[in-house]
Design a protein around this nucleic acid. Structure first.
Lengths: 152, 152
DNA sequence: AGCCAATGGTTCGCATTGCAAATAACTCGC
DNA sequence: GCGAGTTATTTGCAATGCGAACCATTGGCT
């Protein structure tokens, strides 16, 4: 089974690629002393502070799960909880300097590893892939009403 | 930030897509009463039985973690451990009828959901995406020496 | 003003995940 | 048939993530 290579469907190809990138993500995280979830969290904050509720939506986490994750990442000194000026229930999460550094390092490492794997893909095909997948992301955004962010 | 749309790099696009598909995978799994890991396990077996060591490599799991996962999936009646004729240490894992049914259902549901998101991508772009990403998968295979399987 | 539903977070209990190290059973080369 | 390497299991542990109960605050409604 799985001879030289069979013809994969579009969906199957995407799913396999997803699992490959998952492991790239996990490997890089581990090399930086982080779990994938923590890496994902700090990468979400590279564009600026976010309230927890927003992070929960982006990460698809229930609030209880997010509380724990934030606790652990804060203990490690990568983020801080800041009170929200307009709502005394809410907290804004911001990267500390070391958190920002690590987030940037992880993002760079992940990008580098993917670029290495994609080195043989010609430029025109690359840009086709980018626009096609962005269409896919937008289709999801349109369906759920919320944009899909991540690394940077 | 993130106005109408910024220009994402190839790697960033792939990473965002990865997280989107992760959640598609998780959602479908949950709707079938499974965790993503269990779904992934049974999907790996749709092409036929595999020894545990092979599954461990495909899933990137340490053997101890795999033992536990297999235990739980077997308890649920989706797979069975079969003794290996040639090696009395080894076990082959095979889907039960109900396991095969659920695996096929999950695979179909995931494919359908991705196809729905990709409905607006023109056919030529699709095939470009497929061949580009397969190149990426092969680059990884060449680097690590092991093929990358999944769903079907 | 006063009340009440909805919202943002936390806490608790729980099952699952996944690693590492130690152990047992077996295979294979010498 | 000895010893090294391989396959799987067990144990202990930290992290993940859900659900439900709970508290404080907000905001609408009267």
């Amino acid at each position: 089974m799985l001879g030289a290579d069979e013809t994969l469907t579009f969906a199957d190809t995407l799913v396999r690629c997803t699992h490959l990138i998952n492991h790239v993500f996990a490997d890089v995280s581990r090399e930086h002393g982080l779990t994938p979830q923590r890496t994902q969290l700090i990468c979400m904050l590279t564009r600026g502070p976010l309230p927890m509720r927003e992070l929960g939506r982006l990460l698809h986490l229930e609030k209880s799960g997010l509380t724990g994750l934030v606790d652990r990442v804060e203990e490690r000194g990568l983020i801080v909880r800041q009170p929200d000026a307009n709502d005394r229930r809410a907290w804004n999460l911001a990267l500390t300097p070391s958190g920002a550094t690590i987030a940037a390092d992880c993002h760079a490492a992940i990008t580098a590893r993917i670029e290495a794997l994609a080195a043989d893909i010609p430029a025109p095909a690359r840009s086709t892939v980018v626009s096609a997948l962005q269409g896919l992301l937008q289709a999801h955004t349109a369906m759920t009403g919320r944009p899909w962010k991540l690394p940077s």
